[in-house]
Computed example of a mutant assay.
Amino acid sequence: MELTQDLLDRLLGESLRAREFSHSPYSKYKVGAAVLDEQGRIHLGANIENASYPQGWCAEPSALTAMLMAGGKRAVAVLVTGPGPDIITPCGGCRQKLREFSVPEELVIISGDPGGIRQRWTLAELLPYSFGPEHLKT
């Protein structure tokens, strides 16, 4: 699927909109994610903090859950936004979760903030030599 400028603009806008749903009373660091699935649909997620810190979750798995619940099977792009100006990327755990539902050499991960798109990579660049479902096949 080609990531046209129009599609990138939509992903950025949706990821920024997802930040509005963040529950981040402790860190005050709102993160949004917009996942584009193999059918061309966009699914949103936001970070959700919890007073028992390890029980919170990131924006990316929230968006992946929305994708799966809507019948999506594979993420082809994810645009993650934070407050800026620092570039935000998925944490290690989120990279592994994205790995479960993508082709690492094809999944495009894009970093953005209210100022626009900052950088992009493939998942394979951010998570080289990753472990995935194919390793468990006998």
Results as ranks from 00 to 15, higher is better:
135 H>S: 12
133 P>T: 15
23 H>D: 06
118 R>F: 13
81 T>W: 02
9 D>L: 03
101 F>Q: 04
37 D>P: 08
3 L>Q: 01
101 F>I: 05
41 R>Q: 12
135 H>T: 13
137 K>N: 13
112 G>D: 10
122 T>P: 13
34 A>M: 03
57 W>E: 05
51 A>S: 11
11 L>S: 05
29 Y>W: 03
16 L>E: 08
60 E>L: 03
19 R>T: 11
54 P>T: 03
133 P>A: 11
15 S>F: 01
60 E>F: 05
17 R>L: 13
108 V>G: 10
138 T>I: 10
137 K>F: 15
38 E>L: 09
123 L>E: 10
8 L>V: 09
130 S>D: 15
136 L>F: 10
33 A>Q: 02
131 F>S: 12
25 P>T: 12
47 N>M: 00
116 G>R: 11
92 G>I: 12
88 I>D: 02
102 S>A: 10
120 R>F: 09
112 G>K: 02
61 P>D: 07
55 Q>Y: 09
10 R>S: 10
27 S>K: 02
38 E>R: 04
121 W>C: 13
36 L>W: 01
131 F>E: 14
88 I>E: 01
76 V>K: 06
119 Q>W: 13
11 L>G: 01
44 L>W: 01
133 P>Q: 13
85 P>T: 04
135 H>V: 14
93 G>W: 02
9 D>H: 03
69 M>Y: 15
9 D>W: 08
90 P>G: 01
30 K>H: 07
69 M>L: 09
87 I>Q: 03
117 I>N: 04
81 T>E: 06
110 I>E: 09
122 T>Y: 10
54 P>A: 03
3 L>W: 00
130 S>H: 14
4 T>Q: 05
86 D>K: 03
74 R>I: 13
28 K>H: 09
17 R>Q: 11
87 I>H: 01
84 G>N: 02
15 S>M: 00
22 S>V: 07
84 G>M: 00
85 P>N: 00
82 G>V: 00
11 L>R: 01
58 C>Y: 07
68 L>F: 04
38 E>I: 14
15 S>T: 08
77 A>T: 06
63 A>C: 13
133 P>W: 08
25 P>W: 06
106 E>S: 15
16 L>V: 11
127 L>A: 09
72 G>T: 09
129 Y>V: 15
119 Q>K: 15
134 E>T: 12
78 V>M: 03
132 G>S: 15
17 R>C: 06
62 S>W: 00
29 Y>N: 07
119 Q>A: 14
57 W>Q: 02
36 L>N: 05
53 Y>C: 02
